[in-house]
Amino acid sequence: MKAIERVLNARDKDRPKITEYVENLFTDFFEQKGDFLGKEDASIYGGIALFHGRPVTVLGHRKGRTAEENMACNFGMPGPEGYRKAMRIMKQAEKFNRPIITFVDTPGAYPGLEAEMYGQAQAIAGNLAAMSTLKVPVITIVTGEGSSGGALGIAVANKVYMLENAIYSVLSPEGFASILWHDSARRDEAAEVMKLTAEDLYDFGVIDGIINEDSDIYSAIDKQISFALRELDKKSAEQLQKDRYDKFRYFDEEYLQQSVEKRMEVV
């Protein structure tokens, strides 16, 4: 499959949304709103739920399904308040020793006037720094579009997985083509060059596994989360923190070379 087809798949309006993942994978969900600093951002959806009877904190980008919902959640593009809300509930998860599960699906952080005014850059940077120190298991699943710092802002995890039709990239292919070739129409070519498919990212060692979409997607994700939790549950708080730190510390040339002889976690 061509990279651009993956991009279009990842953006498909009919793909499951965060609300459906939460509904199908968890029970007893209690939604938590607000950054408690003055704003609520519906483009981040999250709260507490049970995963096979165990309390977890779950959150992710919310794009919405209907036109009205799209508008209300700004098409899944958070402002700083969204990132601060995410951090607020993640810190709470750490306090109550709950694993954190995040779902990534965003075209990017919102490039707007108010977002800049209230510190979009600081909010994202703050999340990256704080997530690296969390003392509970953090699992991220890229379900659709994982675009730029807006995706990474909730994705500094011990285990990062991608659905096979998801993409994860530094920028949209349109943006990439526009910056490097001054021609956003060359997006198909950009998608190819950028290496943004699940297979590409697995080869880079950026993700830990690919979740197959052939059969029931929810049961495949359920299995992957269970698998990851079994491994992460064996680790102490300090070890979880250290592992996550090391995972992101070594995105250098050496890491690249090693990732070629990678480990596959088969679902």
């Binding site: 940077a125 690296s132 730029s148 994860y168 530094v170 990439f176 290496k195 880079f204 992101f248 510390r249």
Partner: peptide, 25 residues
């Protein structure tokens, strides 16, 4: 981010933030 390095340039954001946080801690 350095576009020419794709996703690995994005990962530098997490990497540098983690190291700086540790230094500050």
């Amino acid at each position: 981010a350095r576009m020419q390095e794709g996703i690995l340039s994005l990962m530098q954001m997490a990497k540098t933030s983690a190291v700086i946080q540790k230094f500050k801690d």
